[in-house]
Design a protein around this nucleic acid. Sequence first.
DNA 1: TTAGGGTTCG
Length: 775
Amino acid sequence: MNVETTVEMQRSLIQWTVWEFQFPKQRQQQHNPEASTTSSEGKVLTLSVTVSPHRMQVKLLERMPLAAEGHLDVMPVYVLSEGAGPGAQVPTDLTRIPIPLIDISADHSNKLVKGKVICKGPLMSLAADDFVLKTVIQEEDSQPDASSQNQSINVVLFGAMAKHFNQAGSQGDVVVASGFTVAKSSTVDEDKLHPCNLLLSGDDACLYVSTCINLSLVYCIWKIYDEFITSHRFKPNNSIREVKNQRNLDKHFDIMSSSICGVYAVVTVHYKYIIETFVHISVFVPQVSRLTPLPDPISPLANKRNATLSTEITMVALKCKPRQHFTTARQQLIQHDSNSHNATAIHTTQQQITQHNSIGETETERVSRRTKVPKYTYVPLGDLKAGSVVNVYGVVVFFKQPFKSRGTDFCSSLKITDQSNQKIGCTIFCEKLEDHPKIYQIGDIVRMHRVKTQFFNNSITLVNTFGFAVVAFDGAVGGAVEPRTSSRSFHFDQEDRRTVEELRSWAASQTLLPPVCTIPLSAVQPKAYFDLTCQLLAKAPVDTTCTLLRVWDGTRCPRTLLNVMVERDVTEGPSSFSKAKEKLIANVLVYDNHMEFAGQLKPGDFLRIYNLRAIPGSSKVPGLTSSQSEEVDHLAFHLHGGTAYGRGIRVLPENSSEVQELKRALEAFPDNDEDALSDSELLEIWSTPPESLDGDTVECSSGSTLEETSRLAAGYHNIVPVKSSDGHLALLDLSAPFLFRGRKRFYGCKRCSEAAVREPSAEGVQVIDEKIVAE
DNA sequence: TTAGGGTTCG
């Protein structure tokens, strides 16, 4: 059994050089345990991987033997690369039979069927460790109109195969089945599918799954870090499942790679877990002059490989009992691997790389090439002289988000540096926020046009002047070079790209950057200052100096978080969340000058809050509940007034790598679907008078139509429609309980529900005007 | 014009 995963080399990394390392025979045959002690002669590289929640640093140190333990707990999955395609992977002695031609009376012992998964049923458990799963596959090459009969067939998987397919397969995958039996379909009248079913069970049954898994570079590092280095145990079961959650291919890659900082060598892109044979890891090292190439790469292929640009599809083959097909598959796998530098799109010359670089250029670059924009010159920061107007590049070592000055403009404050090691302060005044540099974190790179140099306190500073323009870039080595600017036209060419990349590499080699202070809620320490990347869920004014922001980042702070009660009708966004979600929500109190900016935020916005303070056990917070004032072990989050240490808030754009990363974390939260309302919850809400539901669970609407109520319901957590009855509130329909939650409506059963109406407290509820009700 | 980094009232 083996697992092999292939990751494509992405465009933004094509100038990287690949070294390959192969670890032959870490373990001998799984079924031959005596042999497993032999041979760990495979040469291995050692990695130093430093991982913090938002950054990762991988350093190539030296080579040493790698303890390869725990290889045997692998689920029977083959992941084969697309290069060969399904046809090449399956045994050649089998012939393909089109789905419509499958017939119960024919002999299928040497046949295979190929089709696309159009429906995947749930995994059903028959007994402990015995499963069944039904899926529907459709003849892949079928014409939509011509002879469309019986193009789709039920495939029933049994045992471990069902379980593995449940994890590894999904709708849209292309599968090849062999070793199946054919049975009469009992559901043909209902599903109108093929009159036969394919049954995949027993030793001969085999299913090859071709899926569009595409691992990100960094994801692989994570896996290697996680499974290989930390625990020395493979958990391919997990990796397959998790990988399949990472289908957002290019984006995912960009995000992850741009969140790397200071990468010296990146492992993977083409790695294989091959149990019993070898582990195979490729190393990509950026071609920057500072880095000397690794001495004598182990693999003879090493210098030949540079990059592969093609989209690859990963093949997964599932087998109940792999023994019989295993040898074939493995041999093919190895063969495929040794040929892959021919078979896949690998570029071996600098010329080809250059070609791809130019293919990779942006529209702007092409435009600027054609229209001959005048060339900019950039003055190194060490060569600045007072009294001139210059263009500069620099790495951000300090920044303040734009803040309101006493004059007419917003003011940004930066400190930048470059290879000259000069640190230069910059002050930028612009009326419009969008004209300010879009700096998200220290290490970002800025290019500024038309800044004037002036002396202040014995050093040169930069201030923007007429015609000022700024573009910012992420500072992560290997990440996409995407200019952040609101400018419609700006010059950007290959030289700019190179400058950015050189600055990135240089910065990565320096220790000039302060340690990362962006941490998730789960890692917050009392008294710490930190930057928080989060999503705003709701906000509410607390008093004249303070606004409450309710935020989350998908992680849970191990400490009790401060609970701040505010009046419901001043809350923007939902006034309450599910219990599980509430546990993840941090209440951030934003003071003074930050209130104005906070006022413009909308629930749903993705934010980075800079220099947030985690304060333990305060009891003097406005709105604090009396029960909590006793508590000492809670954390409050304060964004204090002022802009010291870059204190402030920034809305992160939806397409930024930071937000993409955050979104993945939030999507992983299992209870994200607030629409799901269990019977007991419904009962709880229903049978409890509104005013006693923790004060904020139920909204009452009065005298509205169904349509109005529905519209209203979209904006509230729960709505129980009521009507006016003698000036009091009454349920619209007493025969059955119903509850509106967002777009969903929940109805109780007439027979078994007992609806009780209690009069809500008058506070916050309008006195009902009979005329309005009548209207 | 404005700011010219350097924590904390809450």
